[in-house]
Design a protein around this nucleic acid. Structure first.
Lengths: 265, 265
DNA sequence: ACAAAAGTGTTGCACGTACACCCATGA
DNA sequence: TCATGGGTGTACGTGCAACACTTTTGT
């Protein structure tokens, strides 16, 4: 038991026990806390996000990130995972899940008139899990390629894609930026591919998330030269033309020096 | 008005209006949302954090990050700023304020037995604002050098410093890591110094936050070579020995290539 | 045979680090 | 004049981008 634990996990004092006994939650303004998940994957070589079509008000019919209310007995991370499976029928857990940011601007949700709705956004990565199935509260659920969303591709007209609910476009924007930046200094690209993968698979992740072309030769060398990024299996996969070596994720989580993302474009 | 705005800021539908009218907040489990602020500064060449001694339960007498409850009409960022001034008497606003992370593990606050307490932690930087004054809910308020806290300096015994309340040691730990990492790729070091500063002042920020020595010659050159980091004023300040040039913050917020933090030490 | 992708070799350049050295100042 | 800190010069090593080239396979 380290110092931190011994200090933090102490029992309640007499004073605190009395305080809690007299505590009355109804004396405070009502709040709702929700979790929303930005689940990203690579589908047909394109970066895609999982959205659900809302079946109930508010904003019924618009598309939203899967999410929902915090239960009294669970952590907000558990909320995120639970809502993800409930609303989209996903069976596998995401390969990576991290907290992104909390959104609480008054008016971001119509319910704010009666109860403030604060939402904790999560960012998740996984290999393509196949077709999702609409669950509770959802009319339908599907992956959308990010640049098929009008709010993320200026070339598209407003009528050509889904309308995002609440401030979920802000969340997605922040999530995409975080994802792009995390690929620079972590090994999280491996969260987008299967357990065994080729270096080309991994390069495709970088190219999709960064929206840029990468020199295969230099990429291959750099990945192999970074200690702990990938481990060879010895096996080769016949993938179209020349057989490529298969690799698994190594033990490292951060890479240094970082990979550099080409300037905008 | 861009696409995003035109999609998001639409008025309520008939359906949503009816939904809100019938909405009953008391049907949902009670939640509290709070903001806590990790305010860092450099004092006497050491990295310091602002703490308040709690005057009320729970955990009366222990030291906590300044913070408090979200009001129904304010954003959580406004909560953070309001509680900071209320509890510590600070008059100036922090030079930098960003959201760090949200903490919601069940049991992190004794009140969780009756109402879940979810806390949004903020990270703030500013030049030394002088001595704080204890305000509402606080018995006292002061800056603590980070390595005078037993939880952050293994050389100290548990009895030699303040006891941190709730999970605030976790928050501080995460905040310090974020601060160190942000200095690598942003110009936020300037948030710790006065409007006019010498390159040595800036270097001291890096050395305090990173706990490492930096070659003054190379640092000076690198800062000057990074476009938009600092702008010369032409003025010089007699600071002990040879006069050093005074600079102000430039227009850039991110720096590339990043500054590299020496490996652990 | 040829196309496509995996992978190797080679070169130039940009940048970081280390360290020697000079300059300006106040005690 | 001497200690101190600001600032310049320079040499060395590393690592990445660019691109030509070889290897391996399926059709």
């Amino acid at each position: 038991m380290n110092i931190k634990q011994s200090l933090y996990s102490k029992r309640l004092s007499e004073e605190d026990r009395a305080f809690i006994t007299n505590y009355e939650p109804r004396d405070y303004p009502p709040n709702a806390v929700t979790a929303d998940v930005i689940l990203l994957t690579i589908r047909s070589g394109r970066l895609a996000v999982l959205l659900v079509e809302r079946a109930n008000p508010p904003q019924s019919g618009s598309w939203a990130l899967p999410g929902g209310h915090l239960n009294p007995d669970e952590s907000i991370t558990q909320t995120a995972l639970r809502e993800l499976t409930e609303e989209t029928g996903l069976t596998a857990e995401p390969a990576h899940l991290e907290q992104l940011q909390t959104y609480s601007t008054p008016g971001r949700d119509a319910r704010d008139e009666k109860m403030r709705v604060t939402s904790v956004a999560y960012l998740a990565f996984m290999p393509d899990p196949g077709t999702p199935r609409a669950g509770s509260d959802a009319r339908s659920a599907r992956f959308w390629a990010v640049d098929d969303l009008p709010e993320f591709n200026p070339a598209l007209g407003v009528e050509e894609g889904p309308i995002l609910a609440f401030d979920h476009a802000d969340m997605l924007r922040d999530g995409l930026e975080r994802a792009a930046s995390k690929l620079e200094y972590t090994t999280l690209a491996t969260a987008f591919v299967d357990e065994q993968f080729t270096i080309s698979d991994l390069r495709l992740v970088y190219e999709s998330v960064w929206r840029s072309g990468i020199d295969p030769a230099n990429f291959s060398r750099k990945v192999k030269a970074t200690p702990g990024f990938i481990e060879p299996t010895g096996v080769k996969r016949a993938t179209g033309r020349a057989p490529a070596g298969l690799f698994v994720k190594g033990s490292a989580d951060v890479i240094s020096p970082p990979f550099f993302r080409p300037v905008e474009g």
